[in-house]
């Protein structure tokens, strides 16, 4: 026979200890998020008031190097791009930003974020800072949302929280890939089926997310520039659906918003960290191209 009394006492003790420890650790970890210089910590816990905002996925991180842009353009730049960020999360970030800061003079959106499907997964520790992020997590990953509310330390179980710790005392705006792709690997590169699948016409839900973001910018009278950053030479030529994809996105946003296609603009493979990401020197080269093309001119598209 089970000795019920001992068992019940043990379980009550365990539940209480667990809940107290869980909530206490969460409070400490939340303080870490607040103190960090990580870009999304800054979004919710300081006033940025940047002139130019950059939104995107990992290609946004490596294509738009904020320190160089600030020097070249003489304006403050903040890059909210992160690996795997999708369009819904970027839309939320822009809305939350505009509620807490002065409206930026320009938003740059690297539209290959439409490929990302990560939603809020890695940034679930933001759910306590933003009702929008909380709602997004609930809608896209209900299991995680329940887990995060039951066991709050689970919010911090992501790679991005490790980055939060890493950027505790230094800005992450100078984070960029310094690697250089192996030229031989680059020359022999063939687009994989998985890669090709990314370029299927985006799902309506994705396009709706993009439209929502663009309309929000329009309402706030923020010039928004839609860009496809550089890929390694020959990359887009190998894609069957590239033009169809671009046309579908252009049709969705309408002719008021031009898509700036720089996918083939950089020839030298030494400017790439891999097939789809620029490196530090590549981002500098890209910036010169953007400037040369009058990309940063204030006039509406």
């Amino acid at each position: 026979m089970l000795r019920h009394g001992k068992a019940i006492l043990f379980l009550v003790g365990l539940t209480t200890t667990f809940l107290v420890a869980d909530r206490s650790i969460s409070i400490i970890l939340n303080q870490v998020v607040r103190k960090s210089e990580f870009r999304f910590s800054k979004l919710y816990h300081s006033h940025l008031n940047a002139d130019i905002l950059v939104l995107g996925n990992s290609r946004g991180v490596n294509g738009f190097f904020a320190p160089s842009m600030e020097t070249e353009l003489g304006q403050s730049v903040f890059n909210f791009s992160l690996n795997g960020l999708d369009i819904d999360l970027l839309g939320n970030a822009l809305k939350d930003y505009c509620e807490q800061n002065t409206v930026p003079k320009m938003v740059i959106l690297e539209i290959t974020s439409l490929h990302s499907d990560n939603a809020i997964g890695g940034l679930r520790f933001l759910m306590s800072d933003s009702p929008r992020m909380d709602k997004l997590l609930k809608e896209t990953n209900y299991r995680d949302w329940v887990l995060c509310n039951t066991c709050t330390v689970y919010q911090y179980n992501t790679e991005l929280f490790l980055r939060v710790i890493y950027f505790l005392s230094k800005s992450d705006q100078s984070w960029i890939n310094d690697g250089v792709v192996d030229p031989e690997v680059a020359r022999n590169w063939k687009v994989s089926r998985k890669e090709e699948d990314l370029w299927k016409v985006p799902a309506d839900k994705k396009l709706k997310g993009l439209l929502d973001l663009v309309h929000f910018a329009d309402q706030k009278k923020i010039p928004i520039k839609l860009v496809i950053g550089p890929y390694i030479k020959g990359y887009t030529e190998q894609l069957e659906n590239y033009q169809q994809w671009k046309t579908a996105v252009q049709e969705a946003v309408g002719n008021d918003h031009q898509i700036y296609d720089f996918s083939n603009s950089i020839e030298n493979e030494l400017n790439f960290a891999d097939m789809v990401h620029l490196n530090r020197s590549g981002s500098v080269e890209f910036l010169q191209q953007l400037k040369g093309a009058g990309f940063f001119a204030r006039s509406p598209d």
Partner: peptide, 12 residues
Amino acid sequence: FSTGLIALALLG
């Protein structure tokens, strides 16, 4: 037990 469960939630 609590440490194990929290380690699972935080690092699993």
